[in-house]
Amino acid sequence: MLDIKNVRKTFNKNTINEKKALNGIDLHLNEGDFVTVIGGNGAGKSTMLNMIAGVYPIDSGKIQIDEINISRDPEYKRAKYIGRVFQDPMLGTAAGMEIQENMALAYRRGQGRGLAWGIRTSEKSYYYEALKKLGLGLQDRMTNKVGLLSGGQRQALTLLMATLKKPKLLLLDEHTAALDPKTAKKVLEITQEIVEEQNLTTLMITHNMKDAIQIGNRLVMMHEGRIIYDVSGEEKKKLEVEDLLKKFEEASGEEFSNDRMILAK
């Protein structure tokens, strides 16, 4: 499904701030894989997702989705294959536009946009049903501006929008990190429901090791721009948080000092 071969990226090359963000990433995802991605700050998790989405160009390597080479496509062209939810709840939606207008924009992801009406009456019932499934009561507020919604509601809406038109790949960049624990849990539940229902191939970055173990069928650990641990199936199910910490120390030769991850136990 997704094939990443030896992808490298250095920011601010040849300056004092040079930062090797990705140091030869190799990753292959099968259809329907739900992969959680963990790693300390600066490990390159977000950079990897941004490279897949095409936010910045890569220095070298190859990114393929379903055998299509997208390595050099701009972000807006890759959107055809990729649904995304960002860490910042403000980033995924247009605040000054109605809920249904936002959904209509997302429903046309990757399609040519012409002079047809931006939202057809026939779509509205589809959006209504989709919103109803979220269980947040948004279906009765479809003409409200998105700016009136809370962070959690916006994140749930972004998630729905990313999957309204089934993406080949869903990228979740710590999409619950900015939410309070209760809302984060709810959004995570919705995530699992949607991914399961549509059998979506998904990459999800998280800082919560428990979530990383419990959710999905595969777990990937990153460190210094590399994937240092990749586990799936039965082996992943049996993992404990302690195992992950030990693995991290083994692979990196450092203590896992990120207190957010320790607290997340």
């Binding site: 062209k77 959107a79 960002f86 939606t93 924009l105 012409g114 002079l115 939202i119």
Partner: peptide
């Protein structure tokens, strides 16, 4: 015009460029 697909994408560009690029629009 601003009710059409292109027009909506233009309004979204003014709102949030990251969002509308993620929906496949060349801002």
């Amino acid at each position: 015009f601003f009710g059409t697909e292109i027009g909506s994408a233009m309004r979204a560009t003014g709102n949030n460029q990251a969002m509308i690029r993620a929906q496949g629009v060349n801002t």
